[in-house]
Simulated scan of single mutants.
Amino acid sequence: MEAIGQFIPLILIFAIMYFLLIRPQQKKVKEHAAMVEALRRGDQVVTQGGLIGKVSKVKEDNEVEVEVADGVKVRVVKSTIAQVLNKTEPAK
């Protein structure tokens, strides 16, 4: 019985860490993955490097082509998109 009593604080610490750190981080990762999957041509995005541009092409191999200035296009890995500023309206 005493052995169980010694493990209760450890279990409580793990539960608190789970609800305060692990679970919110998993939710944030899931939201980022959904945002990256929903990228479409015409969306204005910010990369983790700070580049702001408009998506000109969504490629199948985990890349997007972003136009950062007139005629200047860069290939960006989808997971490095930090934020979508302006979403385009869905095609009907």
Rank of each mutant, 00 (worst) to 15 (best):
M1I: 04
M1G: 15
E2V: 09
A3D: 10
I4R: 13
I8P: 01
I8M: 09
L10R: 13
L20E: 10
I22N: 01
P24A: 11
Q25N: 15
Q25K: 13
Q26V: 08
V29T: 12
K30D: 12
E31K: 12
A33C: 10
A34R: 14
A34M: 14
M35P: 05
M35K: 08
M35Y: 05
V36C: 11
E37K: 15
A38M: 08
L39A: 11
R40E: 09
R41A: 00
Q48I: 09
G50C: 06
G50Q: 09
L51D: 09
I52Q: 10
I52N: 10
V55K: 01
V55R: 00
S56R: 11
K59Y: 08
N62T: 10
E67Y: 03
E67G: 02
V68I: 15
A69W: 03
D70F: 13
G71V: 02
V72M: 06
V72I: 12
V72A: 05
K73C: 00
V74G: 02
V74K: 10
K78Y: 02
K78F: 04
K78G: 04
T80I: 07
I81S: 03
I81T: 02
Q83D: 08
V84H: 01
V84N: 03
V84F: 04
L85R: 03
L85K: 07
L85V: 01
L85P: 05
N86G: 01
K87C: 01
K87G: 03
T88L: 00
T88M: 00
E89L: 07
P90W: 04
P90G: 05
K92P: 00
